[in-house]
Amino acid sequence: MNPFWQNIFRKRPEDESVAAFLGSTPLFAELDPRGLSTLEGRAHSRRYKRNETIFEEGDPGTGIYLVRSGRVRIFSRSGEKNERELASLGPGDFFGENTLLAPAPRTASAHAQENSELIGLFRADLLDILRKHPSLGNKILLGLARVLSERLQTVEKASTCAQQETLTPDESDETETAS
């Protein structure tokens, strides 16, 4: 085919589409192609430059961001200049999922570490999906509940380990005898 027509009728390869990217994340892994395509229509693709602010601690939070390309630094501030890095996220990772269901101020800040593309899905979009496509909305909610539950379990385990580490050897002996 002539390159001119080839360019006009060129289709984007499946794996390049936002739908394919969404399907590759654990949150939306259970969705079928039709559901992913509907979700693609609701999601927002945003490009951030290096060091650009995505959100700051205390900003109104109403949705989740998925990193499609680039890197994002999540950190909290304990003073004017004291920053504590909490995570550095890469392609396929997501953050801010806690505020998707219940809007709340952001508990940490997020900045782009390098030029990045993020896919945002917000409460308004989720409510719209739930109203128009209830079964798809339910699948998304189930995925979200699963991820939140996994994260809660991880935090619980980490907190139990930390507690055990802080217990003095005598105390831990007492605990063992008691049990």
Partner: peptide, 26 residues
């Protein structure tokens, strides 16, 4: 209509996008 609104909201700078999107919905 929804798409037109989204296109309008998409013009918002990154920093304020989330707030403008939520407000436009409300």
């Amino acid at each position: 209509g929804q798409r037109m609104l989204r296109l309008g909201v998409a013009l918002t700078p990154n920093r304020h996008f989330e707030m403008v999107h939520d407000l436009s919905y409300l």
